[in-house]
Design a protein around this nucleic acid. Structure first.
Lengths: 169, 169
DNA sequence: AATTGTTACGGCCGACGTAAGAATT
DNA sequence: AATTCTTACGTCGGCCGTAACAATT
């Protein structure tokens, strides 16, 4: 029993008609008939009683409806979780740095960052003064600035993060 | 994304090791590697970061764990529901009946019963006196007796059910 | 050298579609 | 005759295993 079979089962339950369920699932009607038949054989219980040209839900089928809906719902929730996670991980980071602190901190930072977030793209620009760095970040031309100075200049409303340890994420 | 992939994913999460997860799933390790790879491609997000010889859970992977566990749990619940339903529906009914009430009540009873419980097998034996019927049921040769008499004879500890309406289940 | 994950490749099971059949209204 | 489900059969995709490879400790 897998999620596909349960989805098919619920489509039949909702329509009580193999033909309409099949077209709503975008498969041929005999394929659906075969899928339900296989599921019934696996479970050892008929899910529908074939009466005349139509079908009636069996007791076992009735007992399967709620667990089946739960599975399908939660599968959809898992898909949504994955989709939202993708949104967070995909993207690009543009940073700007000065020459002197540009080499050592930057190289290891980028290496660690890309190791943790392989789908990310990191773009680095160059600046020559701390003021240039601050300006670029303020102007939105870069999302992250890296600078070394005795006293941080007019940082405005920017977040400033001191770097002392090589371990951070 | 299907339930199989989520099961595989959780096995890797629980062991943090493709090899052990594979043997716990009774599949070869490259098959598991391929399955996870396919899942990651479908989702558009890496679930693990391959660092050196090992793996580390990614942010997306962490966010997928709980929904995945939910799906697997629910699938197991659905299986259990189907199993319990099977226990109720499978079986055989052996009944014994006299000739006179044997035809009309019996034929419609069996027809309705088998229509409602197609997995059931109904076996009918014949008797010629009410005493024979009672005796057969008492002896356990039949599970159900059908008889017509002015006064029910020594029914012992048997349950007696008067038939008046044609509607019962 | 050993451990661990990936790539390459081939076989096989099963899901699906088309066509034909059976049963009911 | 029309509707509805089932059976028969062929095709194709994808899951899995074996073998070979790559990378790290």
């Amino acid at each position: 029993m897998d999620a596909r079979q349960l989805t098919y089962f619920l489509a039949v339950v909702d329509t009580m008609n193999f033909g309409r369920a099949a077209e709503q699932l975008y498969i041929a009607q005999p394929s659906l008939s075969q899928a339900i038949s296989t599921l019934e054989r696996e479970l050892g219980v008929p899910l529908f009683h074939r009466v005349g040209r139509g079908i009636v839900l069996s007791d076992a089928g009735a007992q399967l409806i709620e667990p089946a809906r739960q599975v399908v719902r939660d599968l959809e929730a898992a898909r949504a979780a994955a989709r939202s996670a993708r949104g967070l991980q995909r993207g690009r980071v543009e940073l700007i740095a000065m020459p002197s602190p540009g080499m050592e901190p930057l190289s290891t930072l980028v290496r660690d960052f890309t190791a943790d977030h392989p789908a990310m793209t990191v773009t680095a620009d160059a600046a020559f003064t701390p003021e240039e760095v601050v300006q670029a970040v303020k102007a939105g031309r870069s999302e992250l600035g890296l600078l070394g100075a005795a006293s941080p200049p007019h940082t405005g409303g920017l977040n400033v993060l001191p770097i002392e340890d090589s371990r951070w994420s």
